[in-house]
């Protein structure tokens, strides 16, 4: 009886202890979190514009504890003076990011200084407050030309803005970065400052392209206070042909590596030879028994 009681107590305690593990882990309180809501803008090579918001609640005590706000509906506006044009709506994903791609043909209204004012708005829910973030950027145009000048592969960039009369105004004192696409991130090849709306440099040698030797050259103005993020890219046959080496002795090749045949053969031969040896001995036992039987009968 005593043993059974101990068994019962031990098992019940073990189960009760394990049940509590989850309940501790589930404790989250919204008051302990600070909501961060930000807006970002990327002008793409085709002149379309990506508007992106990040909507994340961060624990006030533990910054590593970040909870993205999922499925939140965000409205994106172009505002100027009293006007407010809805550009579109997007929902946040599992990372708390909502993205809206505004097509290249979108006509933006600008303020008196020529800035495009963008606004992202979250209307709020029972649990979360109203949030908004604003951004003002000047529309900038990047013209990327890849030319061979005197047999030198040259990258030429023209950067300008347009005034109200569509007159090109060259950019001044603006940081620019050039890169080529990489496996994990873009690989930088040059960086500098645009002067008088121009920047030029010699394209480096020994840059790998795709199987045909084509390579993308990317020019980007990043996190600029006046222009935001602007990207331009162009494809050219300036890369080295990437040789795809066919390696033999792979598991997905038609023929298995020789060592595999050797190892498998040795293992199987060893085991099956032993089986045969056992069976031969069984026959010998049978024969000995038969001889003994015959002797007894005689």
């Amino acid at each position: 009886m005593g043993t059974k009681i101990i068994q019962f107590v031990v098992i019940t305690l073990a189960i009760a202890l394990l049940m509590n593990i989850k309940s501790f882990a589930q404790e989250n309180d919204l008051k302990n979190y600070k909501v961060r809501f930000s807006l970002n803008n990327i002008k793409q090579p085709d002149n379309s514009r990506i508007l992106e918001t990040s909507f994340i609640a961060t624990n006030k005590k533990d910054r590593k504890d970040r909870v993205p706000v999922f499925e939140a509906s965000i409205n994106f506006f172009n505002v100027a003076d009293d006007k407010e044009i809805l550009l579109g709506t997007a929902k946040t994903d599992k990372e708390g990011t909502a993205q809206l791609t505004v097509p290249a043909n979108q006509k933006y209204i600008t303020d008196s200084e020529g800035y495009i004012n963008l606004k992202a708005v979250f209307d709020g829910t029972d649990g979360l407050d109203y949030e908004e973030a604003e951004l003002a950027v000047r529309d900038v145009f990047l013209e990327l030309n890849l030319e061979e000048i005197d047999s030198v592969k040259t990258v030429l960039l023209n950067a300008y803005t347009l005034d109200s009369l569509n007159t090109k105004i060259p950019l001044e004192e603006t940081e620019i970065k050039f890169s080529i696409p990489g496996f994990i991130s873009n690989r930088p090849i040059q960086q500098g400052t645009i002067e008088n709306g121009e920047f030029q440099f010699e394209f480096p040698e020994n840059i790998f392209g795709d199987i045909n030797g084509n390579v993308d050259v990317i020019a980007s103005i990043l996190d600029n206070d006046e222009f935001g993020n602007v990207i331009q890219r162009k494809n050219i046959h300036w890369g080295i042909n990437k040789k795809i080496e066919t390696e033999s002795y792979k598991l997905w090749s038609k023929v298995a590596p020789i060592w595999m045949y050797v190892v498998l053969s040795i293992l199987l031969l060893g085991v099956w030879a032993n089986y045969v040896y056992s069976i031969i001995n069984l026959f010998k036992i049978k024969k000995e028994g038969a001889e003994l039987n015959a002797k007894i009968k005689k």
């Binding site: 049978k286 000995e288 028994g289 003994l292 039987n293």
Partner: peptide, 8 residues
């Protein structure tokens, strides 16, 4: 198999 439990 004719096993007679002999020593052999």
């Amino acid at each position: 198999i004719n096993y007679q439990d002999t020593t052999e």
